[in-house]
Each structure stands twice: as structure tokens, then as C-alpha cells.
């Protein structure tokens, strides 16, 4: 009996610890200034097609202080790797110590995939994302909507919860979303540190969001 109580107390204690840590991590992100200490390690999540084009436009705008740059793509995506390599090699002419890597993880959700099978494949994607994010230890995760973002952001959050490192979550909602957030946007809105939208109607609906006009 007393062991049961012990296990329960331990369990709820752990849950409580996680919730408190989660709260602290999510609310103190704006005080985190990795750029003051040196280069900012970026993990950029490239989705497929339009998402990749948009994320590369954003990466192009960042100064050489954002390095190294790690890209994550879904393993079913053939096009993105080529786009990233073309982009990074063209960048190298202007920036001699450019460093980048590309990593693949299983896709967490294909378009039109059902909810139940999405859950299974998302859990599978988390299994790959956690070790990847733990070994790269980025200062920030930059993402813009493909389903692959969610497991990587969750892994980043876990680094913070465990007190290893605060990973800033920077989300840029796709220019396609004018009045409603994407599913990924809805999931990441509460846990992201900087959440950008590109249309004023979304800014009005989501007070935490940042609106700087169209940025891609």
C-alpha cells in the first residue's frame, strides 16, 4: 500500500515538475539572448515544396552570425535536399566559414493522412527527433508549417524542461494562411517563443503573434 502511494507521489511529482518547468521555459523565452554570447546555432525545418522555398528565403536573410545551420527534412522529400545544397553553396562565396548539415527524419504526417495513423507516425518521428536535437543542441529551431516541425519543437522543448539548454522556437506561419492558422501553427502557437504571421487578420486573432508584413 505504502509503495503504491510512493509510486503515485513520484509519478505526480514528476508530472508536476514537468508542468512547472514547461511553464517557466515557455514564459521566459523572450529573455533568452543566445546571440550575445556568440554565433547562434540554427536548426531549420524544411518541409516540402513551398515550405522549403519560404524557409530558404528566411535563412538567406540571416547574417553569418547564425551558424552552424542544420537542416532537417522528411525522408520522403527528394526535392528539398537539392534546393538546400544549391542555396548553401551559392552562399559560400560570400561567407567563407559557412557550415551546414542536412538530416533526415521520418515524416510525421502526410497530407490527408488520418488522425489515428498521424499519431503513430508522429510518435515515430519524435523517437528520431529527440536524439537529433539532443546531439545538435541548437539555440533556435526555425520552422514554418510542415508536420515535421512538431516533433522537433517538442524535442527542443524537452531540452529546456530537463534544464540542458533553452532552445528558442521560432515559427513563421506560411504566407498562404490569411485568416486561419495551419494545424502545425495551432499546435505550436502556445509553445513557440516568437510566432510570426504575415497577414494582419491573424495578428488580430492571435495576440501573441508578431506581424511585420509579408516577410517571404
Amino acid at each position: 500500500m505504502s509503495m503504491c502511494v510512493g509510486v503515485l507521489v513520484g509519478f505526480f511529482g514528476t508530472v508536476l515538475f514537468f508542468i512547472i518547468r514547461l511553464f517557466i521555459i515557455v514564459t521566459t523565452g523572450s529573455k533568452c539572448r543566445p546571440g550575445a554570447k556568440g554565433p547562434v546555432t540554427v536548426l531549420a525545418v524544411a518541409g516540402s515544396g513551398g515550405h522549403t522555398t519560404e524557409i530558404l528565403r528566411l535563412m538567406e536573410s540571416l547574417s553569418p552570425s547564425y551558424r552552424p545551420r542544420h537542416y532537417v527534412i522528411a525522408d520522403t522529400d527528394k526535392m528539398s535536399e537539392e534546393k538546400i545544397c544549391t542555396f548553401e553553396t551559392s552562399k559560400e562565396h560570400t561567407d567563407s566559414d559557412s557550415q551546414f548539415t542536412i538530416h533526415r527524419i521520418p515524416r510525421s504526417r502526410e497530407v490527408h493522412q488520418s488522425w489515428s495513423s498521424s499519431t503513430v507516425s508522429t510518435l515515430n518521428a519524435i523517437r528520431y527527433s529527440v536524439p537529433l536535437v539532443f546531439s545538435l543542441r541548437p539555440d533556435m529551431v526555425l520552422c514554418n508549417g510542415p508536420g515535421t516541425c512538431v516533433p522537433l519543437c517538442v524535442a527542443g522543448l524537452l531540452l529546456g524542461i530537463l534544464g540542458v539548454k533553452k532552445v528558442l522556437i521560432v515559427y513563421v506561419e506560411s504566407i498562404c494562411r490569411v485568416e486561419t492558422l495551419s494545424l502545425t501553427g495551432k499546435i505550436l502557437y502556445p509553445i513557440s517563443d516568437y510566432f510570426f504571421v504575415q497577414w494582419s487578420a491573424l495578428r488580430d486573432k492571435y495576440p501573441k503573434s508578431i506581424f511585420l508584413g509579408r516577410i517571404v
Partner: peptide
């Protein structure tokens, strides 16, 4: 007119304390 990713970069530089 094309979007302005530079605005995003400037915002992030300031927020993250990038020199």
C-alpha cells in the same frame, strides 16, 4: 511587391541579442 525577409532578420537580431 516581394516580401521583406530583412525585417524578420532585423527583428530576430534584436530579440536574440545578435551584434
Amino acid at each position: 511587391l516581394p516580401g521583406q525577409p530583412k525585417n524578420f532578420a532585423n527583428f530576430l537580431d534584436k530579440a536574440l541579442g545578435v551584434q
